Simulated assay, not measured.
Amino acid sequence: MQTLSAKDAKYGFGRLIDLARADPVAVAKHGRPVVVVMAIEEYQRLKALDACEKPPAKEEQG
């Protein structure tokens, strides 16, 4: 995964989008990764996996 500084991400937002469409990109602030930018398709895939793995919620008994 490629990492960009927050400054580079801010001033090169178009480049960040282009990079993130191909592979998730970490954005670092003060040298520490704080967020990941990814293509919407990858986000939707991960959300679908998460939904499949969650056990059904227990109903509260009163």
Rank of each mutant, 00 (worst) to 15 (best):
A57C: 06
V34P: 08
V25L: 06
A51L: 04
R15C: 10
V35P: 15
A39D: 15
H30V: 09
K29V: 15
R15G: 14
A20T: 00
V37D: 05
K58W: 02
I40A: 01
G12S: 13
R21S: 05
E41A: 04
D23P: 04
A39Q: 08
V36C: 14
F13L: 11
D23R: 12
E53M: 15
Q61D: 13
Y43I: 07
A28L: 11
V35Q: 12
I17F: 01
Q44V: 13
D23F: 04
F13Q: 05
Y11M: 09
E53K: 14
L16E: 01
A22Q: 10
L4P: 00
L49V: 09
E60N: 03
E60A: 06
C52A: 14
M38P: 02
R45Y: 01
R15Y: 11
R45N: 01
R21A: 05
G62T: 00
L16I: 01
T3Y: 03
Q44F: 05
E60Q: 00
Q44C: 09
D50P: 06
V37N: 06
V25W: 02
Q2N: 09
R32L: 15
P33T: 06
D23W: 02
M38Q: 03
V37F: 13
V37H: 05
K54H: 11
A39F: 03
M1C: 04
G31W: 08
L16H: 03
Q61S: 12
S5E: 08
K7N: 09
E59A: 13
K47R: 14
P24D: 00
A51R: 06
A26L: 13
G62N: 00
F13A: 10
G12A: 13
G31H: 06
P33Q: 08
E53I: 13
I17T: 07
E59V: 12
L4R: 02
A57R: 14
K10T: 12
E42D: 11
C52R: 14
Q44Y: 07
A28M: 10
P33G: 06
G12R: 15
G31D: 05
M1I: 00
M1S: 09
V36A: 12
C52E: 14
T3S: 06
P33W: 09
A9D: 08
L4H: 03
K10V: 06
E53H: 15
Y43F: 12
A20N: 01
P56L: 11
V34I: 14
Q2K: 10
G12Q: 13
A6P: 03
C52H: 11
R15L: 12
E42F: 03
L16T: 01
G14Q: 13
G14T: 13
E41K: 01
A57I: 08
F13C: 05
G62I: 00
D50M: 15
K47H: 10
P24V: 04
A57F: 10
V36H: 08
P33A: 07
V35I: 15
A51H: 00
G12D: 12
K10N: 09
R21G: 03
A26F: 11
R32Y: 14
M1P: 07
E59C: 11
P55L: 12
L4D: 00
A48R: 02
L46W: 07
E41D: 05
M38A: 04
K58A: 06
L19E: 02
A26W: 07
A51W: 01
G31R: 09
R21F: 01
Q61P: 03
A26M: 14
